[in-house]
Design a protein around this nucleic acid. Structure first.
Lengths: 334, 334
DNA sequence: GACCCTAGCTAAACCGGTTTATCTCCGGCT
DNA sequence: AGCCGGAGATAAACCGGTTTAGCTAGGGTC
């Protein structure tokens, strides 16, 4: 089986290849009668232009790219990215080229390759680092890109982000209002920009705070929680950087016989079915909508709009059963 | 910035384009000394071949495709697909072209397009229907494909599958051994092949069974469970077709004051963090490994191996707190 | 020495489009 | 009548590779 090409149409319509190209792309240079005839022939032959061929002559590749740096096995548990991708897809008519690599270097190499090969029209940049070489790379390559989730301005790149600083501050204020003073934070990867941002917000608004590093896995959440609770001065509240660590932490607290929220309050960052069923108070944002917004931003850039920074709505704290008045505060009240 | 092309290398090495192509692809027709020189020049210039251009002359597209038919919003909750994709990626060196569409027709159209445009070297087919037009399409197009999750033989296509029939039978036998007689099944979409297969297995091994249709959403799981439990003769055990529906069902049972597993046993199909935290007995399979296996199968087909049917390991029943001896059986014992 | 074969390379066509240069024809203006 | 301009079309170059046909030089054979 063989698909019709532009040459077949040209022959069938009795015109040249060039004329067909002009006609199909709605450009001037052919008469309306000829254009109509060409379109007629094209549709009757079931013609579909080849993106591959078109990409060769420096036009659109009809795809955008996303590279995730992560051990593949860990990826499956992170609903965040899948939600994000689903949201992106909802706003995109073109395809998404997705590849998972295991190192930052491989990621950069891949972006170079995709660019060199005209494989994508633009890319999403996620997991922004504190000083991210990709930002510089994109502008030097001239590859349209949207920074997803990195607060602040990034060179000439468009970005879509949520205000992690304000969100963290609001969480801490909420806990402080409940009487909590000794508050702990189980953080995500220290190399990520939003981790630093949340760290800053946490430290500047908390009274007596401690930060433990984590890596988003259940194991990290459990061990961090254990070390915090078995320490000399255990906190009365813990804020986790994702849902998986928070649920694991809740389990550890339970196994240690510590009552939630009576003796310990827990907050998860990013809501999910997991938090809903664990009755965990969580900082909720609509990741699907976030992805959709990112996709729109990228499409806008591809259409020539000047890159803008779009701030997402502030994450909202969904209070469930895992947070309550601090034990010390309650003691002084009673 | 401009990437070096084969022409640049030819000029730098003082040979023709054709010779460079032969040299780079390890084909005969150039002397070893010339080949060495060309490779030298190529690497010093940081040359990367353009897949786009290569695809034009009917070679590899260096990508495989996956189309998901689903309302995008619903996708994010289905950890199954993300696990699957993560597993696929772990075994693939090439990129995955992913697109979510909303109708079966759009899916077929997309496969046609990708094929016509040489955009992918092969595709994965998921969510196999009872009589699936895609199977016929693939062989008529000559597009290499792997059927993922559809038990049985599908024309000339390779397939990777788990034995749903045997798995369902083992679940029912397990429940029967616990004394359950009135067993219900909350099924997935009736159009899917594996749903039918599970239905058949369920009906042929159960004594007094009833099947309620669902669509994998929490809402469907909840309403199906409610109608079952509020019926005249409520079942003593329910088997759900996925984790989301099972967890929702457990919640409904709780809100109705029905004790699990005292009065009602629950089993989920496909294990997940959700089941682990809900202490739900679940039929567990390694979806990540399943995806990896599918990827290997596709790569094998691309390399010219004749298509084979690979049977995945049988899902394993992980018994947790949601299943126990049937109430009637217990009554007769005491 | 004539003949043939083959290794090693080049030139050119080809893939399916886009884009530019060129060519023709027709109408309007002075 | 002569000139200019623009619309409408074509041929050809181009994108970056692959592939094929053809050319040349050298070695072996009789």
């Amino acid at each position: 089986m063989k698909r019709p090409t532009i040459k077949d149409i040209a022959a069938a319509a009795g015109v040249s290849k060039g004329a067909v190209s002009l006609a199909l792309n709605g450009r001037t240079g052919v008469s309306e009668t000829t254009r109509a005839r060409v379109l007629e022939v094209a549709s009757s032959l079931g013609y579909r232009p080849s993106v591959t061929a078109r990409a060769l002559s420096s036009a659109s590749a009809d795809a955008v790219g996303l590279v995730l740096v992560r051990p593949p096995r860990a990826l499956g548990d992170e609903a965040f990215f899948f939600q994000l991708i689903a949201g992106m897809q909802s706003e995109m008519s073109c395809a998404l080229l997705l590849q998972v690599v295991s190192s930052r270097d491989a990621e950069i190499e891949l972006y170079r390759r995709w660019w060199a090969e005209h494989r994508v029209d633009g890319v999403f940049l996620v997991d922004l680092l504190v000083s991210d070489p990709r930002v510089e790379l994109m502008s030097s390559l001239g590859l349209p890109a949207v920074v997803v989730g990195g607060a602040g301005h990034h060179g000439s790149l468009a970005s879509v982000w949520a205000d992690d600083y304000a969100a963290m501050t609001s969480v801490v204020e909420y806990l402080k209002a409940l009487g909590h003073r000794r508050i702990a934070r189980v953080a995500g990867l220290a190399s990520l920009l939003h981790t630093v941002r949340r760290d800053q917000a946490f430290l500047s608004s908390v009274v007596d705070g401690v930060i433990v590093a984590g890596d988003y896995t259940a194991e990290a959440g459990a061990s961090a929680t254990r070390s915090l609770l078995e320490g000399v001065q255990p906190p009365t509240a813990i804020v986790y950087d994702n849902d998986v660590m928070a649920v694991a932490g809740a389990e550890v607290a339970g196994s240690l016989g510590i009552e939630v929220p009576g003796e310990l309050s827990l907050v998860a960052w990013d809501d999910s079915v997991l938090c809903q069923h664990g009755r965990l108070t969580a900082l909720s944002r609509d990741t699907f909508a976030f992805g959709a917004r990112a996709a729109r931003a990228l499409l806008a850039v591809l259409e020539g709009a000047s890159p803008t920074d779009v701030e997402d709505v502030l994450p909202e704290l969904v209070v469930r059963g895992s947070t309550g008045v601090a034990p010390s505060a309650r003691a002084s009240v009673s």
